[in-house]
């Protein structure tokens, strides 16, 4: 039964779209490498990283109905913690006066995820008391607090941010080359997609999706919605934090802009543009957004105007985002 389920997803239009989208994302940098256009390799990494951030948010927003306008907090926190470990490895000193720096990603990345997870637990416990627009705004408020905290933290460069001169190494592997680093980003994205696919099909996923559609129903069958939503929120935050880690590693730079509300908005745009609650939605959303930005930006300085008109057209005329447009309505068992 399990196999027939997976196969039926792969045979559906949405399944085909998922496979094609990922294949294109994987092929693009290989073609770029062959053509000598290495700029496109880092562009593909950027798409994979920001898609990952969207995949994280999509779990909270699409599956759990938690419209977080503060996921930049986790994105930035992940990035800052991973960045700080590299920073201390280069400059000496200790993270929060406790931990010496390291350039070993197998240590610093899990640490970053743990810190973001704890922050999400704390933010979630308070924020999930509210609902609707109040939830949107209280998550924004927490993200803004982290933003101003980063601004006021002189150790890590305050407003100017901190520059890192080398990427972390992954076990014994160097990922300083553009292509190896892309493979890491792509691999992480695939794992996150697999995780989300299994999560939404699991018992936990059933409870989480019910919490979005009808909390009273969930409580009536005897499941307390709060821990379900809180768990979903924390997992979602940690996935987005991992994207923040990768972006800081890619750019060798961490600054408060990682935490700005624009970032939260941008991640949310990826999800809505791609199709809320659809597995591949954030990947399509991030890819199309970044490509539009790059392509239109190549033709005209007024790219924001064109981008705005295109996005407006999509939201007015393509309900359900890009996945809705290409693969129709979501199907559930």
């Amino acid at each position: 039964m399990d196999n027939s389920r997976s196969n039926s997803f792969l045979r559906s239009r949405e399944g085909v779209l998922t496979v094609v989208a990922l294949a294109v994302l994987l092929a693009a940098p290989l073609v770029a490498q062959a053509a000598g256009q290495t700029y496109f390799i880092s562009l593909a990494s950027r798409v994979a990283i920001l898609a990952l951030a969207g995949v994280g948010l999509n779990l909270a927003l699409g599956s759990g109905g938690m419209i977080s306008f503060g996921h930049a907090a986790f994105f930035g926190l992940g990035g800052y913690v991973a960045g700080a470990m590299v920073f201390h490895a280069q400059e000496g000193g200790q993270f929060l006066g406790l931990l010496a720096g390291t350039q070993q990603a197998l240590l610093s990345w899990p640490l970053a995820l743990a810190v973001a997870g704890i922050a999400a637990l704390f933010i979630g416990v308070i924020s999930l008391r509210t609902s609707g627009v109040y939830f949107i705004m209280i998550t924004l408020a927490f993200a803004q607090m982290f933003y101003y905290l980063a601004l006021s933290f002189p150790t890590y460069g305050g407003e100017d941010g901190m520059t890192l001169y080398e990427r972390s190494t992954l076990g014994g592997l160097s990922v300083s080359g553009d292509l190896p680093f892309f493979f890491v980003c792509f691999g992480v994205l695939l794992l996150a997609l697999l995780l989300c696919s299994r999560l939404t099909g699991s018992r936990f996923g059933a409870a989480l999706m019910t919490a979005r559609q009808n909390e009273t129903r969930l409580a009536t069958v005897g499941i307390n919605p709060f821990p379900v939503k809180l768990t979903g929120f924390v997992i979602s935050a940690m996935i987005t934090a991992l994207a923040g880690v990768l972006l800081v590693e890619q750019n060798g730079f961490a600054s408060p802009s990682l935490l700005s509300w624009h970032r939260s908005g941008e991640i949310m745009i990826f999800v809505i543009l791609g199709g809320v609650g659809r597995l591949i939605g954030p990947v399509l959303g991030a890819a199309v957004f970044i490509l539009l930005e790059t392509v239109i930006g190549g033709y005209t300085d007024r790219w924001q105007l064109v981008l705005g008109l295109v996005l407006l057209g999509i939201v007015l005329f393509a309900r359900g985002g890009l996945v809705g447009l290409l693969a129709g309505r979501a199907r559930h068992d």
């Binding site: 927003l61 419209i67 627009v133 949107i136 908005g265 949310m268 745009i269 809505i272 543009l273 809320v276 007024r302 924001q304 105007l305 981008l307 705005g308 008109l309 996005l311 407006l312 999509i314 939201v315 007015l316 309900r319």
Partner: peptide, 20 residues
């Protein structure tokens, strides 16, 4: 529409207004 569509549409309007 739900709030999310409103967010995306009015975000687009910000881009249009700013650049305009």
């Amino acid at each position: 529409r739900d709030h999310l569509d409103q967010v995306l549409a009015t975000f687009s309007l910000i881009l249009i207004f700013s650049e305009g």
